[in-house]
């Protein structure tokens, strides 16, 4: 196929319904990564707290958090996805591909996000927590009023860049049959359109989604950095 043939195909590829398919697929991609990250934030915080705890009673939970995080971060997303995909069939759960993909993205992102949160919590000085204990704050009060507000500027930038990274990882969900951008591209190529044009368009769509978020992330990082800096220089009273 020559280059002019490819150009001639362009108007036939980008019809209304094909664009609608790509648009909906892009929304599924966003849904997968956003859902994964939000679930990851909630459970990641719990795992990070479990790993930091010193209570004898929480020791099994601490061990579980350690093993979960260290193992899940060293298994490829594709393998985890296939484990859930085939595993749910073998065990007789009748789950939709999207549900399976949502579960596996959440499981994976929990492991990664919990490491980011743990690093953020470790950045808060121990003396702050001791001061809160002296002032008779409870565990959740210390967390909500003292630790999290100080850890947040440290946590947010890497979380954001992880979120951007994660959008690209969800491309593998196509292998479980989820109708996201890559799968939409595969459908269009089986309709006979040139793979070069279709996957080129998919590539551009990913870029359009990912680039503004990446820029927003680096903006956020510099702004949070500056505000922390100026807060430190501001007189106390």
């Amino acid at each position: 196929m020559s280059f002019s043939d490819l150009l001639g195909q362009l108007p036939r590829v980008f019809t209304y319904y094909n664009l609608l398919l790509l648009g909906q697929a892009a929304l599924t991609t966003l849904l997968l990564s956003a859902f994964g990250c939000i679930v990851g934030l909630v459970f990641g915080l719990l795992l990070a707290l479990a790993r930091r705890s010193h209570a004898r009673l929480l020791l099994p939970l601490k061990a579980f958090a350690f093993i979960y995080v260290e193992i899940l971060r060293r298994v490829p997303f594709l393998v985890t996805l296939m484990l859930f995909f085939f595993g749910s069939q073998v065990l007789g759960f009748d789950l939709a591909p999207l549900t399976i993909a949502l579960i596996s993205t959440s499981v994976i992102s929990t492991a990664f996000v919990s490491e980011i949160i743990r690093a953020g919590l470790d950045a808060v000085k121990q003396s702050q927590i001791e001061a809160a204990t002296v002032m008779n704050f409870g565990f959740w009060q210390t967390l909500r009023l003292v630790v999290l507000p100080q850890a947040w500027p440290v946590i947010l930038p890497p979380i954001f860049s992880y979120f951007v990274l994660f959008i690209k990882d969800t491309a593998l969900a196509s292998q479980a049959g989820v109708l996201e951008l890559v799968q939409a591209g595969r459908i269009l190529t089986t309709k006979g359109f040139s793979a070069f044009i279709v996957f080129g368009a998919v590539l551009l769509l990913y870029f359009v989604i990912s680039y503004p978020l990446a820029r927003l992330g680096s903006h956020l990082e510099s702004r949070l950095g500056v505000s922390r800096h100026s807060r430190a220089r501001r007189p106390i009273s």
């Binding site: 196929m1 490819l6 951007v164 690209k168 870029f207």
Partner: peptide
């Protein structure tokens, strides 16, 4: 900027399935 903002999977899709269209 381009390569860090697009998925590796789709990049390989373009190389493996797309470039044959150009020979």
């Amino acid at each position: 900027v381009f390569f860090t903002n697009t998925p590796q999977l789709v990049q390989i899709y373009v190389i493996f399935y797309g470039l044959p269209d150009l020979g």
